[in-house]
């Protein structure tokens, strides 16, 4: 029996974030579970299928993030915990790490903690490393096979230019992304029951975190501004015979220093 936690973040589907006339970010359209987190949950589900146990999803976000945790239940998680507090607005990844770590400590101990490599909105990939450092729990990345034996995790993983087989005493944190697996789609049978029990919500006070360590106040990094990139493509059509167009392409390669000899 393995007690598993999965870190989950609700994010906007990239295309649906826009900037309005005043330069304010407008998050419209779909909110989804961060794709890498689905891979993390998929890995957790596979472990549960083999060794039995329970999966608790943990997320820090605004109240609507509970939908992401309910979706996780539709995929197979057993329960969800949402840390939500208006004072957390504007938190950077270090605050997020400390909040998640406090929650994991409070609801643990967990044998395995799965997390996605990076979120498609922030694109930092900090949290798993920092949770590992803050909780002093080893981190295994780029794994493709896992086994649990005598309270140790045996992992086949890639590190640097090596393929390694490692062993680590539990607890361990693991990160997953699209390369790790193809997450299963939500089972309609589970969707039916996903809403039977709600998600547990806790705030900063219940977690015992000082408000000065949260939100913008507690964040070492600040966002000065956000600007939209307007990507302009040339849309130039090459003309000529195959040979001529081929040579134009080669010229393009040379011009951009891309022909390596």
């Amino acid at each position: 029996m393995v007690n598993i936690a999965v870190l989950v973040k609700q994010v906007p589907a990239s295309q649906s974030v826009k900037m309005d006339k005043n330069g304010m970010l407008v998050r419209e359209g779909d909110l989804i579970v961060n794709p890498d987190d689905l891979a993390a949950l998929e890995s957790a589900l596979r472990i549960k299928e083999i060794y039995g146990g329970q999966i608790t999803t943990v997320s820090m976000g605004p109240p609507q993030a509970k939908d992401a945790l309910l979706e996780a239940k539709a995929m197979g998680a057993d329960k969800g915990i949402l840390i939500s507090d208006p004072k957390l607005k504007g938190s950077d990844t270090w605050v997020t790490t400390k909040v998640l770590a406090a929650c994991l400590k409070r609801f643990g101990p967990f044998d395995l903690i799965f997390a996605g490599v990076e979120a498609i909105d922030g694109n930092t990939a900090h949290v798993p490393y920092q949770v590992s450092q803050a909780m002093k729990i080893p981190l295994i990345t780029q794994f493709h096979a896992l086994k649990i034996e005598h309270n140790r995790l045996i992992a086949n993983r890639i590190k640097g230019h090596e393929s390694q087989q490692t062993q680590t005493a539990l607890p361990v944190i693991l990160t997953a992304n699209k390369q790790t697996n193809r997450p299963r789609y939500y089972d309609l049978q589970r969707i039916k029951h996903a809403f039977d029990a709600s998600v547990e919500t806790i705030d900063l006070q219940q977690l015992g975190i000082d408000e000065n360590d949260a939100g913008v106040k507690g964040s070492p990094t600040q966002v000065l501004k956000i600007s939209q990139i307007v990507r302009k493509r040339e849309n130039k059509r090459l003309e000529g015979t195959d040979k001529e167009m081929g040579n134009q392409l080669i010229e393009l390669l040379t011009r951009n220093n891309l022909l390596k000899t």
């Binding site: 979706e71 539709a74 789609y185 939500y186 309609l188 969707i191 996903a194 809403f195």
Partner: peptide, 14 residues
């Protein structure tokens, strides 16, 4: 209902 919304979202994604 919440179930119907999630069914739609989930099947649409697949």
């Amino acid at each position: 209902t919440p179930i119907q919304k999630l069914v739609q979202k989930s099947v649409r994604r697949f």
